[in-house]
Design a protein around this nucleic acid. Structure first.
Length: 432
RNA sequence: GUGGCUAUAGCUCAGUCGGUAGAGCAUCGGCUUGUGGUGUCGAGGGUCGCGGGUUCAAGUCCCGUUAGCCACCCCA
């Protein structure tokens, strides 16, 4: 009976070879971030319902899994329609940023003034699953809390670029924008402030549905016609560009309306200037004035990583100076950058681990070898630094050898009468 | 949350115009082979995702439902 028992919707089991690859990729990410002076922390996967629903998570709040109050299931169900907030007091985290802000507010006294954190772990969203999109997935975040200056952005971008580079990913593009630029642009065009978010969502689709598609959607949504008309030349200008916009004063001035020139744009140019010489090969940074990002908590710079091998972004982040203040009452600046682990895992190709030459398969004959003798032999080999793996001889050894080869075994020995390690006739697999 | 496609053995899949289920691999056993990957004969294993309906008869047609994939919404 197929599919009767399976992992729950949108959540996955990992086979040994998948788990092995995931751990190796995570290990590389950890090493790079550690070298860049970020320290790893851990927070619970469950947070207070009110923390998760403080209006900072944007649409993700609606997608969060909530946890019923203890004891409530023992009470008789009523027909009264209760709100989730009355039935639930906890929830699974939908990202790592909101928990980090809570963590900082809880532990500020024990943390350095400028805190560089790595957080890697699963998060949950009740989305409809599809390729590259799951209800449980791993995020790998780095954040710098307590740094007002651009130093934070620069350190985050260079550390993330270094991690992508170490993973062998080429052709990564970090697209950068600033929330303040977007707001200034919309204000300049004369959009109603209440419409800002909806207008931004449409602008964000420029690279996907094109100039005509964006205008069509803006008109369909009945935003102020004069504002749409004023936005039009800017959008057509951006859409017509053959390649990305370099992060330079000149290039930025060329695409942005004059009235939108402000501090944020100057900072972006400065950022670009600093990045030019320090980004590794295979990672480039560019200005994308139509980059929006859905998370409501961003207040300044925002970034997203694109890779030709993935239809959607493989990472993203930005500055969220207001969030920690919500929990702490005192304004603390913060910037974060997240690698979309699930989306890079399929793009990454790692060379085989060279540390597998110690793996030896012991092919035991059921007639000649008893379990206690085999385990004794295994102990001897372990003491010699080997990694012994016992298998019974079967009628057809083809699947067994296929499995051993896939697991990276390079040596094997037949165990019949030879039961001391020294007596084994060790043979090697021919390289396939 | 919206729409489209799909669901048959442990795995990969076939099953024609509606007529009660098939293959390869895997598993188990006999014989063969004799320890570097055999050969051969045979066996077990299925409420055809689940629930309804049409029909003398449904894996096959219709409706619902669940799950997967794809496109939206949104996102990592």
């Amino acid at each position: 009976m197929a599919n009767k028992i399976s992992a729950v919707r949108g959540m996955r089991d990992f086979l040994p070879f998948q788990k092995r690859k995931r751990e190796r990729v995570l290990q590389i990410i950890r090493e790079v971030y550690q070298k860049h002076a970020f320290t790893e922390i851990e927070t619970p996967v469950v947070e207070d319902y009110d923390i998760l629903h403080s209006g900072l998570g944007g649409d993700n709040e609606k997608l969060s899994f909530s946890i019923l109050k203890r004891g409530i299931s023992d009470k008789p169900y009523t027909t009264e329609k209760l709100k989730a907030a009355e039935l639930c007091d906890l929830g699974l985290r939908f990202d790592l940023t909101v928990p980090l802000a809570r963590y900082y507010a809880s532990n500020q006294a024990a943390l350095p003034q400028v805190f560089r954190a790595v957080q890697i772990g699963p998060v949950w969203r009740a989305e409809r699953p599809q390729q590259g999109r799951y209800r449980q997935f791993v995020q790998a975040d780095i954040d710098i809390i307590g740094e007002f200056s651009m130093l934070a952005e620069l350190e985050l971008i260079t550390a993330t670029a270094a991690a992508l580079n170490r993973l062998g990913l080429r052709d990564c593009v970090i697209r950068i924008n600033d929330r303040r630029v977007l707001l200034s642009l919309l204000k300049h065009c004369g959009f109603n402030a209440d419409d800002f978010n909806r207008v931004l969502i449409t602008i964000d689709k420029l690279d996907k549905i094109g100039f005509a598609g964006v205008i069509e959607e803006l008109v369909a949504n009945e935003f102020a016609a004069s504002a749409v008309a004023k936005l039009e030349p800017f959008l057509s200008g951006v859409a017509a560009l053959p390649a990305g916009i370099p992060l330079t004063v000149a290039a930025i001035a060329e695409v942005m309306p004059e009235e939108v020139q402000n501090d944020a744009l100057a900072e972006l140019a400065e950022l670009g200037d600093s990045l030019v010489s320090i980004l590794p090969n295979g990672v480039t940074a560019e200005f994308d004035p139509t980059l929006v990002r859905g998370m409501g908590y961003y207040t300044g710079t925002i970034f997203e990583i694109s890779h030709p091998g993935s239809g959607s972004s493989v990472g993203g982040g930005g500055r969220y100076d207001g969030m920690i203040g919500r929990f702490l009452g005192e304004q603390v600046p913060a910037v974060g950058f997240s690698i979309g682990f699930e989306r890079i895992i399929d793009l990454v190709e790692l060379p085989e681990d060279s540390a597998q030459e110690q793996k030896i398969a012991l092919i035991a004959d059921k007639d000649c070898a008893a379990p206690q003798q085999l385990v004794k032999l295994k102990s001897e080999l372990l003491a010699l630094g080997k990694q012994p793996h016992i298998v019974w001889r079967k009628k057809n050894m083809k699947p067994v050898f296929a499995y051993l080869a896939a697991e990276g075994f390079t040596e094997f020995a037949n165990v019949n009468s030879a039961l001391a390690a020294a007596e084994l006739n060790i043979k090697t697999f021919e390289t396939v």
